[in-house]
């Protein structure tokens, strides 16, 4: 007794209900509903997917729009006056006040009404840093995944569709890329970039492209495998026998059928890349400390004292990573199910 049997039972069940007769008139109204509509309808029936989507929308708004609304900037530092009160920026004798004896950096301040999430080790506003950090983390995720998909889908698709010697070359390439140790290579690249004196602010862009180039191999292998198995399906031969143009075959049959796998892979990878970026920042080889990213914000935990006494320093970025990665996975799962007509019902 396997799933196939249960599947066929369900199918029979559907048939029987269809042939009961009265359905015809009601159903006739929804002639030619586009697959896109069906996907959307399916997606919005999935509660977890909606939760994920909402989290993502909030996160993106927070990171993209948030900084414009924030009164502080990313690298702005705050000082305490001699009286132990923070010196407001708009006082006339600001520079004098902060250079008084007894004045010091307002670091690791606890959350209050001025700094909603307190301040960091270097006296930056935590909440603002969190917004800017999210920008970097999300951007890294999207760009790396975009680069890896671009390379992976194209090369994997070519390998699978044309086969032969092209396939052999591309797959050997994939194997080479798969055997490169990632973290050591990034450490080397990081030191090379220091040697080349690449400006701190630009380093992250190079890193993103390099990550994308290193990650495409997995995507290519997946896409190739999918296309190879799809090519053998009889509906591809039916399309061929129907005289369907090659481009149409790719657009209408191949792409929609590899789409779910690509989407799931992409969303899972988005989460994964954000995590990797965090790891790299934590190790000090990604975003430079001057610019925030969620990863290097968690890096603030350098001792157990901080971990215990200043949880506001690492819990917010940690939670941000957790929620965004989770949300990507929820949305990915939701999309996969929505694309899969077997879930329609």
């Amino acid at each position: 007794m396997d799933e196939k049997y249960q599947d066929s039972l369900k199918k029979d069940a559907m048939d029987a209900s269809e042939f009961s007769g009265e359905v015809e008139d009601v159903a006739a109204k929804q002639l030619f509903m586009t697959p896109g509509q069906i996907v959307a309808r399916q997606f919005f029936r999935n509660r977890l997917a909606i939760v994920g989507l909402v989290i993502l929308v909030i996160a993106i708004l927070f990171c993209v729009v948030g900084p414009f609304l924030s009164p502080y900037s990313e690298t702005e530092m705050f000082y305490l006056g001699a009286d132990g009160q923070e010196v407001p920026k708009d006082v006339p004798n600001y520079s004098a006040r902060i250079s008084e004896s007894g004045a010091r950096l307002n670091k690791r301040a606890e959350p209050d009404s001025v700094h909603l999430l307190g301040t960091t080790e270097l006296g930056h506003d935590m909440f603002t840093r969190l917004m800017y950090g999210g920008r970097v983390s999300l951007m890294v995720g999207f760009i790396v995944v975009f680069v890896e998909l671009l390379l992976g889908v194209t090369l994997g698709g070519i390998a699978g569709y044309y086969g032969g010697w092209i396939d052999t070359i591309i797959m050997r390439l994939v194997e080479i890329f798969n055997s490169i140790p990632f973290i050591p290579l990034m450490l080397i690249i990081s030191s090379v970039m220091i040697n080349l004196k690449i400006p701190e602010g630009n380093k992250i862009y190079y890193t993103m492209v390099i990550m994308g180039v290193l990650y495409w191999a997995g995507v290519a292998r997946l896409v190739r495998g999918q296309i190879l198995s799809l090519r053998e399906m009889e509906y591809m031969q039916a399309a061929e026998a129907g005289g369907i143009r090659g481009s149409r075959k790719i657009m209408r049959h191949l792409i929609p059928n590899v789409m779910p796998q690509i989407i799931v892979m992409a969303t899972m990878d988005l989460g994964g890349v954000i995590l990797t970026e965090s790891t790299m920042s934590y190790l000090g080889i990604g975003t430079s400390a001057m610019f925030a990213s969620w990863g290097n914000m968690v890096q603030a935990v350098t001792s157990d004292v901080i971990m215990r006494n200043a949880p506001y320093l690492w819990i917010p970025p940690g939670l941000a990573i957790l929620f965004v990665v989770l949300a990507f996975n929820f949305v990915g799962d939701g999309l996969r199910d929505a694309f899969d007509p077997k879930m329609k019902r």
Binding site: L9, D12, A13, D15, A16, F19
Partner: peptide, 9 residues
């Protein structure tokens, strides 16, 4: 004619 009935109902 027709099909096997729905095994559930």
């Amino acid at each position: 004619p027709g099909n096997v009935p729905n095994p559930i109902n």
